[in-house]
Simulated assay, not measured.
Amino acid sequence: MWYVYIIRSIDFPDQDYIGATEDLKRRIPEHNAGKSVHTSKFKPWKLIWYCAFPDKYKALAFEKYLKGHSGRAFAKKRL
């Protein structure tokens, strides 16, 4: 399974990050440990939403959509 997820900074609640991973239980602690350049300055993070996909390419396509303008609007309104 592949997961698309949204995390939100606890100290900076206006900062969200959208990502995809095969191991969600490992990935969130990595964000909080500062192992990602994109998320290290806004740690700690909390998981606010995720969705499982049986196919890697569908997960990556949905992640790409959510990172775009209309996808961010969709996520803000619906997720």
Score class of each variant (00 low, 15 high):
His38Lys: 08
Tyr57Leu: 09
Asp16Cys: 12
Thr39Val: 08
Lys58Arg: 13
Ala33Lys: 12
Ala59Tyr: 01
Ala73Gln: 12
Ala75Thr: 02
Lys43Ser: 09
Gly71Asp: 05
Phe62Asn: 09
Phe74Lys: 12
Asp55Phe: 12
Tyr17Ala: 03
Val37Glu: 13
Tyr57Trp: 15
Gln15Asp: 04
Pro29Tyr: 14
Leu24His: 04
Ile7Lys: 05
Tyr65Arg: 07
Lys77Asp: 03
His31Tyr: 07
Asn32Pro: 03
Thr39Gln: 09
Gly68Cys: 10
Asp55Ser: 04
Gly68Asp: 15
Ala73Asp: 06
Asp16Pro: 00
Lys67Gly: 07
Arg78Cys: 11
Glu63Lys: 14
Trp2Gly: 00
Lys64Ile: 07
Asp11Leu: 14
Arg72Lys: 14
Gln15Tyr: 08
Tyr3Trp: 12
Arg8Pro: 03
Ile6Gln: 03
Ala33Glu: 14
His38Gln: 12
Leu60Lys: 11
Ile18Val: 15
Tyr3Thr: 13
Pro44Phe: 09
Trp2Gln: 09
Ile10His: 11
Ser40Asn: 10
Leu66Gly: 01
Asp16Ile: 14
Lys64Pro: 01
Glu30Gly: 06
Glu63Ser: 02
Tyr57Gln: 11
Phe53Met: 07
Glu30Thr: 04
Tyr50Glu: 05
Ile48Arg: 14
Phe42Gln: 05
His31Ile: 00
Asp16His: 10
Tyr5Thr: 01
Tyr65Met: 10
Ala61Gly: 04
Arg27Gly: 02
Asp16Ser: 08
His69Lys: 13
Asp23Arg: 14
Gly71Tyr: 10
Lys76Asp: 10
Pro54Ile: 09
Leu66Pro: 00
Ala52Phe: 05
Thr21Phe: 00
Ile7His: 01
Gly19Arg: 02
Met1Val: 09
Phe74Arg: 15
Gly34Ile: 04
Ala33Asp: 08
Gly19Ser: 01
Ile6His: 02
Ser70Pro: 05
Arg27Thr: 08
Asp11Lys: 15
Thr21Met: 00
Ile10Gly: 07
Met1Glu: 08
Leu60Asn: 07
Pro54Gly: 11
Thr39His: 05
Pro29Phe: 13
Ile10Leu: 11
Lys46Thr: 14
Phe74Ile: 03
Tyr5Ser: 01
Leu60Arg: 05
Ala61Lys: 07
Tyr50Met: 02
Thr21Gln: 06
Ala75His: 04
Gly71Cys: 09
Trp49His: 12
Thr39Pro: 01
Arg78Tyr: 15
Phe74His: 15
Gly19Glu: 01
His69Asp: 15
Ala75Cys: 06
Arg72Trp: 09
Ile6Gly: 02
Pro44Glu: 03
